[in-house]
Amino acid sequence: MRSEVLTLALLVGFCTWAFRVFPTRADLSALAPTGILARFLAATGPAAIATLFVASVMPWLQGGVALPMICGIAAVLAAYAGSRSVVAATLAGSAGYGFAVWGLAFLA
């Protein structure tokens, strides 16, 4: 492994590890449940997941909303409504997307 690649990996890896680890050790016991920081942290999770979902579909959206994506999203919604299972919904979404791609290729 070249030294510059190893150096880069170690620098970035150490900082990323520190970003993930040290904030978990913050003492949150003094936070009032309705305080500003407590409210901020409570909203961080939903905001983060919404952001990551949007960021993950944006490459598809920038090419126009395509049928496979609509099928994939619909499959996630239907599977989650029926099962309340994240695993089932994820697999259904992926399968829905794949089947739509296959269907379009078959019709073309």
Binding site: F53, S56, I73, A75, V76, L77, A89, T90, Y97
Partner: peptide, 24 residues
Amino acid sequence: WPVLEAALGFMLPALFLALLLSIM
């Protein structure tokens, strides 16, 4: 395996959407 490749490519958006629904 283009269909499998496409399906696997949509796995992460599907996961994020499912997670979003689970905490909604």
